[in-house]
Design a protein around this nucleic acid. Structure first.
Lengths: 220, 220
DNA sequence: CGCGTCATTGATGTGCATCAAGTGGTGTGG
DNA sequence: CCACACCACTTGATGCACATCAATGACGCG
């Protein structure tokens, strides 16, 4: 969590956690239409959030890992508007939102932290919109891999190796592509010597090449 | 603004407005990279927000009208990450964010209101992601028109007539389409008798048809 | 009136979707 | 422990929606 807090403040912040909850792989933490009461801080595990429309369309709107907060969509109307599904066995901290609001009136740092988390999510989604609106398949996947690597690295994992927690289809859904396109694009990256793929294990051989792919549209 | 407030509370909320600012058509309210200090409530006028990437790509991430709040992206890093451009002469209320935080510690309703505004933006962007990721051109534009109509109607404007404040290119950028595609799709709607188009003036003849277009992917 | 901006419409190209077949890993039950 | 079934993935062939390129038309402003 945040920085520059006194011990007392840190204790107060612990108070927002009402309980913990385990979610098995494949199960949902919350569903579209359910009443919103709490935000969830992921302790361990990996989630996807996805929207399902009346007509059966379904789209992954994000992947969340340990240390990230999930459930912000529910605040507006006190109803969750997406499903949060565990992609591996997970544990979350349940943080009742009224308690968060209460405490953040007393602890300025908490208040500001909450605002930042929400703003960060807005900015992240801006980035995804950019990606969906104007990038080609290779760029999307390069950006996706770089983003995952960066987040995993920030958590102390390898910079170059990662294990995908999601299927090709879920990646495709998130990136606005079909699973075949995801697969083909990975294959192309392999041919080009940029990554190695073995099932869901990915080793990045040439991170710069990925970065180039993402930001080399200028020449077009 | 929100409901169920005492007169005293309402007075307090007025305090968040430090000043007003006029923005002429084509000018920016804030720019990517500028220091973030305030949120802005639009009093009159119409804005677009857009991201510009290093490599010159540019994408509209939203259109905002009177009564909406703009600038939420700046909270995370105290830096704006997008440009806000007035599409017509506009006036905004400047609301210094530290004052918002200060006051929302005292006025619960304000605190909750701020949270809702941010959450609403997250949910809106979720919807755009869905649109960009899985809808075809006709569906995107139908959804776009319906959304504009609904927001304008909520502000007391006609349900069936609207004036686009933005160019075809800006619409296309927002929807992940080229301006030609936007134009062609409008023309198709006209052929089908769904709308009338005269420059930027749009009259919706058959709102149900639009709604059908948006939610008729089940059959495909 | 003439120029610039925005919009429309047509002809052609292409990136990704779609359809289809086959492979490989995993898990289960005999 | 092996056989089978299932699922995720890969790879190829074809088609289509939208992009791209290009020409023309309609406003609005100096």
């Amino acid at each position: 969590m945040p920085l520059g807090l006194t011990a007392v403040e840190l204790d107060r912040i612990d108070e927002v956690v009402a309980s913990r909850r385990k979610v098995k792989r494949g199960e949902t933490l919350f569903r579209n239409g359910e009443k919103f009461t709490s935000l969830f801080a992921i302790r361990t595990g990996f989630f996807k959030t996805c929207i399902t429309t009346e007509d059966g369309r379904d789209q992954v709107t994000g992947f969340q890992m340990a240390g990230e907060v999930i459930g912000l969509d529910g605040i507006v109307n006190d109803i969750h508007t997406c499903n949060a599904v565990a992609l591996e066995d997970a544990e979350v901290c349940v943080m009742p939102f009224d308690r968060i609001e209460e405490l953040s009136r007393e602890v300025n740092a908490l208040q500001h932290h909450v605002h930042k988390i929400m703003s960060r999510e807005i900015v992240r989604e801006n980035g995804v919109m950019l990606l969906l609106g104007s990038m080609r398949a290779e760029e999307r996947l390069a950006a996706f891999l770089l983003n995952l690597m960066q987040r995993l690295h920030a958590r102390g994992f390898s910079q170059t190796e990662l294990v995908l927690r999601m299927t090709r289809e879920e990646i495709g859904s998130y990136m606005g592509l079909k699973l075949e396109t995801v697969s083909r694009t990975f294959s192309k990256f392999v041919e080009d010597g940029i990554i190695e793929v073995k099932q869901r294990h990915i080793r990045v051989l040439n991170g710069d090449a990925l970065r180039n792919i993402v930001s080399t549209k200028a020449g077009c």
